[in-house]
Computed example of a mutant assay.
Amino acid sequence: MTPAGAPRRCPAARGTLGLVTALRDLRHPGALVGPLWVVTVGSGPPVVLLHGNSESHHVFDNLVPHLAGEMTLVGIDSRGHGLSPRGARGLTIAAMADDVAVTLARLGLDRPLVVGFSDGGNIALELALRHPGAAGRLVVVGANLFPEGLRPVGKALTDAAHAAAVVGARVAPNLEPLAERLGLMVHDPHIDPARLAGLTQEVLVVVGERDAVRPEHTALIVDSLPRGRLAVVPGVGHMVPVRAPAQLADLVRDLARRPEVAG
């Protein structure tokens, strides 16, 4: 996540900060906190941002001008993405949610609002399920509970791309990370809708009007959440943070300002 007008650049070396890291120490370009790379921008209450597959925190760059004046945006690179190491456990939504829990604890954040996009939305749901109390209210954008939640054409293309990457990696090992990331979409997540009944916080489920997630699957997510609400962003597909940052910012801002009601 880059401040408006600042160039994107990588640090010369990764540094791991201490057990508890103040958000003020994580300004551009960020640092490794526990298992994950973290960068912050803005001021005000913290909002944690979790990106999608084969992305980094930079997918939220267009959101920065809309929210950084009133919130501290905490961008986190998922395991094996951006500047975060892959780790020994490999890539699963569950492992990535566990990573986020460790990082939030090291940041000393108390039930922050979490915004997750695509696989980041899946990670946010797993985070809330696997680590009750780690996250506060959630905004999940283009999330799915299992791979079949994607529209058939999109799923078929993903499956084909994964198969091609697996074959290609046999002769070009540099394709192995891509094959593993695509495999994450082919095989993960595995979230039983019945488990969502245990979430007590408000969850705003956001999709684009032409999202890659099937509408009936999004309805299943919303209906399975005790305090779930749906917001459809008109005129866009899956890439809501990139294509409709102002609309997404309004939704995040509205949820953040709503009085906290015990679940």
Rank of each mutant, 00 (worst) to 15 (best):
R24Q: 12
G154I: 10
G18K: 09
A135K: 00
P45I: 00
L91T: 03
I191V: 05
G87R: 02
V47K: 04
P152D: 12
G42E: 04
S54Q: 13
V64Y: 03
A231D: 04
P234R: 06
V74Y: 00
R130F: 06
N144W: 09
P173K: 06
E180G: 11
G5S: 10
A165D: 06
T21N: 08
G42C: 13
A160G: 13
H51C: 07
R9I: 09
P29Q: 10
A88G: 08
L182G: 11
L36C: 08
V240M: 07
N144R: 07
A163T: 11
T72S: 05
V186F: 02
L104N: 07
L50T: 04
A249D: 04
T21S: 11
V232M: 15
E126N: 09
P3L: 00
D61M: 06
T103F: 01
G263K: 02
L157R: 13
V64H: 01
I93S: 04
V33F: 08
L225Q: 03
A169I: 04
V115P: 06
L73M: 04
G120T: 02
I191G: 00
V64P: 03
A22Q: 11
W37G: 00
P245M: 13
V47H: 03
R14K: 05
V59R: 14
V102G: 01
V47S: 03
W37P: 00
R86T: 14
H28F: 12
I76W: 09
G18T: 15
H28D: 11
P35I: 11
V153K: 07
P35Y: 11
L125G: 00
L83C: 00
R227V: 10
H28T: 07
H57G: 13
A169S: 14
H131V: 01
A246G: 15
R243G: 08
V236E: 05
G208Q: 02
T158I: 13
A249P: 01
L36A: 08
D77L: 04
L248A: 06
V153L: 08
T200N: 12
A262Q: 15
P35T: 11
R24H: 14
D250R: 08
P7V: 10
H51E: 07
V139G: 03
S54V: 14
V139N: 01
D159F: 10
R170F: 11
D254Q: 09
H28I: 04
T21E: 12
A12I: 05
Q201T: 15
P193L: 07
G108D: 02
V20A: 13
A13E: 14
W37V: 01
L26F: 06
A31F: 10
I221E: 00
D250G: 15
T103I: 08
A244Q: 05
G18C: 13
L145F: 02
A244I: 07
G208S: 02
N144M: 02
G80R: 03
P11Q: 03
D110V: 13
N53Q: 14
R89T: 14
R137S: 06
R181I: 09
A12V: 10
A134Q: 02
A179F: 05
R8S: 13
A134N: 01
D211E: 04
D159H: 10
T103W: 01
